[in-house]
Computed example of a mutant assay.
Amino acid sequence: MAYSLNRILSGQVVYCDALHWDSFWCNALFSDTGIHQEFELRDIQVLIGGSENHLRAFINEREKLEDSDKFTVHRALDDAKIIRKALEVALAGRHE
């Protein structure tokens, strides 16, 4: 798994909505395998940037999507779709 992640993500920045947990598990994976991680993890708030309003727009949209019947929360693919859609709303607000 570590080799695959490096092959796919080498030199890239990966934004996380739970940086603490994602960093913990990534560190566990790479330290257990003795492989050097070749990508960087950053908090999604860095990507959102802007004002508190943009972060609030992201959080509000994410919560709305999580409460809808369109997604199963805590399923990786659905969680990724929720985050992407919430980011679209938050980032669109930066350009208004």
Results as ranks from 00 to 15, higher is better:
I82L: 05
D78Y: 07
A86Y: 08
L19K: 00
L91K: 00
Q45C: 12
Q12L: 13
S51V: 04
Q45M: 05
R56I: 07
G49E: 09
D43S: 06
L29N: 02
C16P: 01
L5S: 02
A2D: 01
L41V: 02
N6T: 06
V73C: 02
F39D: 02
S31A: 15
I44V: 12
E63D: 14
L29G: 03
G11E: 11
D22T: 04
D78L: 08
A90Q: 03
R62D: 07
C26W: 03
F30G: 09
S68M: 03
Y15N: 03
E61W: 00
V14G: 00
W25S: 12
R94S: 11
S51W: 01
E40N: 14
A92Q: 14
K70L: 11
T72R: 14
K85T: 15
E52K: 10
I83V: 15
L19E: 03
G50Y: 00
V89D: 07
D69A: 08
L77K: 04
K85L: 14
D69P: 03
E61V: 00
I8Q: 14
R94T: 07
E63P: 01
V89G: 05
D78K: 06
L65H: 03
D78M: 08
L55T: 02
F39G: 10
T72I: 15
I48M: 03
R94P: 01
V89K: 10
S23E: 12
R42W: 09
S68A: 05
E40G: 04
V13N: 10
I59Q: 04
I48Y: 03
K81R: 13
V13F: 09
D69Q: 13
Q45K: 12
V73N: 12
L29V: 11
A80E: 04
K64Y: 07
I82Y: 03
E40S: 11
H36A: 13
L29F: 05
M1C: 15
L55V: 05
I82G: 01
L19A: 00
E66I: 07
Y3W: 06
L87H: 03
L91Q: 04
L77H: 09
N60E: 15
E66Y: 00
K81Y: 12
E88G: 11
D32V: 08
A2E: 12
S23D: 14
L9N: 05
W21T: 11
F30Q: 07
L41D: 01
S10L: 03
F24H: 08
D79V: 06
S4N: 11
D17C: 09
H74N: 13
K70S: 09
Y15E: 07
I82P: 00
W25A: 10
K64R: 14
I44H: 07
R56Q: 14
H54S: 07
E38S: 06
F58A: 00
V14Q: 09
S68L: 08
S4P: 01
L87V: 04
Q37A: 02
N60T: 15
T72H: 10
E96M: 10
R7N: 13
L41T: 01
A2C: 13
N6I: 04
L19V: 08
